[in-house]
């Protein structure tokens, strides 16, 4: 599976369609039986393009409409029939977003929440996953089953007590409260264990025979090899942290402590159906992740497919 997966994922937009086509004829058996039926390989399947393009319009239209609305006046946004382009273009909607709530702090909270959760998960899950895959220790299987049981339980089951714990620690409405439970992950540990299991043992054994202790074997040999797994875990955790709503909604109460997702929920209450302002807010909240995705699209798509195939 992983070989095919890699092939599927490294094949980006620019990745030579000719090369893919060239590898195919090798496996074709008897092209001479029906020469008329074999259509030339190079011709583009226009029906397929038409269907995919129609779908792509459905996928992209809401984003385009959001972008355009963010620059419209309120009057233009409720005009019937709608004007496609803003007339006039206004930039005041963004100003209103900043005026109605502490957008800067919310942005910072989202960034810190995402960075801290992701860093925590990557370090902790990689270590624990390695131990489950490669070290033997008393109680390993029992502990692993306990980890797996966490995986199967829906979030809501631990939400109330998590809230109580965070409250008891005095962390309600604070960054530690937002971040803390999310730096531990049974899913991440399982993902990394699966990845380490698929790596060959020889290199690590060689390191151990050369006198490296488990920590050295882990950090110098295995971690560099585990890069695809770590990338997948990072992508997954970044998206989950940035987009998370229920937990931040529950633990934060003052606007300066909220991340962007909760900020957007607040905005609905503040602006009702003033869609240009709402769209400006939504745009500001999603743009960082969209830009990151555009830059690192291969890692993102690869990461999601990877978690999909292992999880």
């Amino acid at each position: 599976m992983s070989e095919a997966l890699r092939e599927a994922l490294t094949d980006t937009a620019s990745a030579r369609p000719a090369a893919t086509a060239a590898t195919r004829p090798a496996t074709r058996t008897a092209p001479r039986t029906a020469p008329a039926a074999t259509t030339p390989r190079r011709r583009q399947p226009w029906v397929v393009h038409a269907l995919l393009a129609a779908g792509a319009v459905v996928m992209v239209f809401p984003f385009a409409w959001q972008l355009l609305t963010a620059f419209k006046t309120f009057q233009a946004s409720v005009q019937v029939p709608p004007s496609i382009l803003p007339d006039p273009w206004v930039f005041t909607n963004f100003g209103e977003v900043f005026a109605s709530m502490p957008f800067g702090s919310m942005f910072l909270n989202s960034v810190l929440l995402t960075v801290l959760r992701t860093a925590g998960q990557v370090v902790l899950c990689t270590m624990a996953g390695y131990a489950f895959a490669r070290l033997s220790f008393p109680g390993r299987n029992v502990i692993f089953v306990a980890f797996l049981s966490v995986l199967m339980v829906p979030t809501q089951l631990y939400l109330l007590p998590q809230y109580e714990i965070v409250q008891a620690l005095g962390w309600l409405d604070s960054l530690p409260g937002l971040v803390m439970p999310g730096i531990f992950s049974a899913f991440g540990t399982f993902l990394m264990r699966q990845f380490f299991m698929s790596l060959p043992a020889e290199l690590e054994e060689a390191a151990r025979l050369d006198g490296a202790n488990p920590w050295q074997a882990f950090s110098r040999v295995m971690v560099p090899l585990a890069r695809p797994g770590i990338v997948a875990l990072t992508v997954f955790t970044v998206l989950w942290s940035w987009n998370d709503l229920l937990w931040p909604l529950v633990v934060t109460t003052s606007p300066e402590k909220m991340p962007l997702s909760v900020g957007l929920a607040q905005m609905v209450g503040l602006h009702g159906t003033d869609f240009p302002v709402l769209m400006a807010g939504a745009l500001l909240a999603t743009l960082p992740m969209l830009v990151t995705f555009m830059v690192l699209q291969r890692q993102f798509i690869q990461g999601i497919a990877f978690t999909g195939s292992k999880g």
């Binding site: 996928m59 992209v60 809401p62 984003f63 409409w65 959001q66 998206l239 940035w242 987009n243 709503l245 962007l260 997702s261 909760v262 957007l264 929920a265 905005m267 609905v268 709402l278 769209m279 807010g281 939504a282 745009l283 909240a285 999603t286 992740m289 969209l290 990151t292 995705f293 699209q297 993102f300 798509i301 999601i304």
Partner: peptide, 14 residues
């Protein structure tokens, strides 16, 4: 893939 990297709260607003 675009909606996958977009915050559900923002998707809901749109």
């Amino acid at each position: 893939f675009l909606p996958v990297v977009t915050m559900p709260a923002a998707i809901a607003l749109v």
